[in-house]
Nucleic acid binder design. Structure first.
Lengths: 218, 218
DNA sequence: AAATCTTTGTGATATAGTTAACAAAACGTC
DNA sequence: GACGTTTTGTTAACTATATCACAAAGATTT
């Protein structure tokens, strides 16, 4: 697996998929070149931040010209491992889970939800947006069989920890947790936490307590 | 509206709803006191960070004892404006939107989704999880009428910008955007962006490129 | 081909967030 | 009530991120 010469900052890594998507848009619009200022307008990230982000990968642009869309796109395709498919399992096919299944990640990217699990017998055996749904009892067997090591957890909070324990046994490496539970896992497993309730609540807190400042209005 | 004596850091503000939820858990378990170390274990936030976060609000704990659960809970209830209900509109009642509707935010908090909008005639006129669904055509009228100034945007990407323009006209103040579109809004409006595809993609990038370090394993 | 314009890449600086470490305070026990 | 223990609150150090500002390079125009 090709590794960047220098570790890029996490904040930069988080913006890469965003850049990649917008470069795709530009490409399909037939645009040949783009400046950091234009890109900034589109993705709402400061242009200096964009230039700095790109610079971690070397000198990708040309002074007085900007960036060549095709070249940049090709570069990011390689960098984001567009050629190596990452298979993901979706655990829990409720409303949130179904939202994921209907999102066609493959369009821009090689991350693919390969399989879903639920306890609801009316869902087991069906396919949703091309993804087959199995019973939760088959979790370990199927994951091991298909060598899947990344999972999205969208189950009810009370069963989050027991199901996580089962995922750990199935040798999972990364877990994107959408439940409110804070999961206990061995240290070798990466868990990323997105809590919709917390997101909404802290957003509301922000609105109330952080009025927009003079500086922001300029 | 009561304002904190000192502006607390954004990072702290984002953790408050999390603390609040866990304090509620402790309270319903009948726990009287808790130390920053215990809380750290539960919410997976460094104990020094927790103590620092709490300290922005004054000396809430007692040395050699920890924090009194009831007192802390009461304090946070006030601080997070638990008593002043914030009404939120949900724009787009697809799978993701429905996931929000079925989430009972009121349980721990006074943020409430009051109304939903969709173009699907089979949804218009129904209620989902207690929330009435109206047609998108009635957006401006209903929002102004009910004085709602916060919206969650869960519509298909191509209609995100036109609907946003309509929300701006309806005098919205904050927008929690779950679509991949980067929205253009006047500077006086706060937009917070959560892009599920980007979250998944950057998580996968992390797993591939940021192996767990020695330090993290200790 | 000279002059002007554009835009990168980056040093320097500013801002934000985390964590180690420990004195001081209060607890709990004997 | 003296003494060892616990745990806070905070100073200082560290780490991470964002942004300013500008020289240098190259593009574009005349």
């Amino acid at each position: 697996m090709a590794q960047e010469p220098v570790k890029i900052p996490q904040a930069t890594a988080r913006r890469l998929p965003l850049y990649y998507r917008f470069l795709n848009n530009l490409h399909s619009q037939g645009k040949q070149r783009v400046s950091s200022a234009e890109l900034s307008e589109a993705v709402k990230v400061d242009s200096a931040t964009i230039r700095r982000d790109f610079s971690y990968f070397g000198a990708l642009g040309k002074k007085g010209y900007g960036y060549n869309v095709n070249y940049l796109l090709g570069f990011f395709r390689k960098t984001l491992d567009q050629d190596e498919l990452t298979k993901v399992a979706l655990i829990g096919v409720g409303n949130l889970g179904t939202a994921f299944l209907n999102y066609n990640f493959l369009k821009n990217n090689n991350t693919k939800i390969e399989i879903g699990f639920d306890v609801d017998e009316s869902k087991v055996g069906t396919t949703i947006g091309d993804v087959p749904i199995y019973h939760m009892d088959e979790l370990q067997e199927k994951l091991v069989e298909q060598g899947i090591t990344v999972a999205i957890l969208t189950v009810p909070a009370p069963v989050a920890q027991p199901i996580t324990d089962s995922l750990v046994e199935a040798n999972i490496k990364g877990l994107l947790n959408f439940t409110p539970a804070r999961l206990n896992v061995p240290k070798t497993i990466r868990v990323h936490h997105i809590d919709l309730a917390v997101e909404l609540q802290s957003f509301v807190y922000f609105l109330k307590h952080y009025p927009i400042t003079e500086k922001e209005l300029i």
